[in-house]
Amino acid sequence: MNVFRLLGDVSHLVAIIILFLKIFRSKSCAGISGKSQVLFALVFTTRYLDLFTSFISIYNTVMKVVFLVLSYATVYLIYLRFRSSYDSESDTFRVEFLLVPVAGLSFLENYDFTPIEILWTFSIYLESVAILPQLFMITKTGEAESITTHYLFFLGLYRALYLANWVWRYHTEGFFDQIAVVSGVVQTIFYCDFFYLYVTKVLKGNSKLTLP
């Protein structure tokens, strides 16, 4: 464990908690893409299958459980508890255009052709594109509440910190996970234009992000 990965995990946890609390306390999921949240729940489900078979550390197990519980709880809030506030007309990204290529690629490019390894690879590739329905929804509605932009900021920051973690691990222990690194770079690139808007607009104190 290094400081970049720890800060990355904390940033990821903060993002997930921000989103959950925003929906739970405002009793509304307006402006939130339910499709992205379903994809994230799928990412955690396919990545943490080894939750009960291989024990790494208390931290590892606890974080996996927390991520799984909060992601499914968020999907529950969006599609069941507060479904009347779910803006399905704006959440129209065709997720099959993500799932099919990601599934195909995970069969082609993986470290080991075994179910658990292919599912892990699937989760890595899927995570890199899972935010696209949310970003697409924001461009479609042309705006986002500032709490939603804080969620996206910490979510984007988490994988950027993981990139620093991989640089660190490469230089200190020769660790290099090509699939995770390439996907992490792609994932972080998708946030770049959002990061620019976040810094130039939201941090200037605007109540919400309105796209030009």
Partner: peptide
């Protein structure tokens, strides 16, 4: 192909 590494990352 990467050697069999323990997946210690989240």
């Amino acid at each position: 192909k990467l050697n069999e590494k323990k997946k210690d990352e989240l």
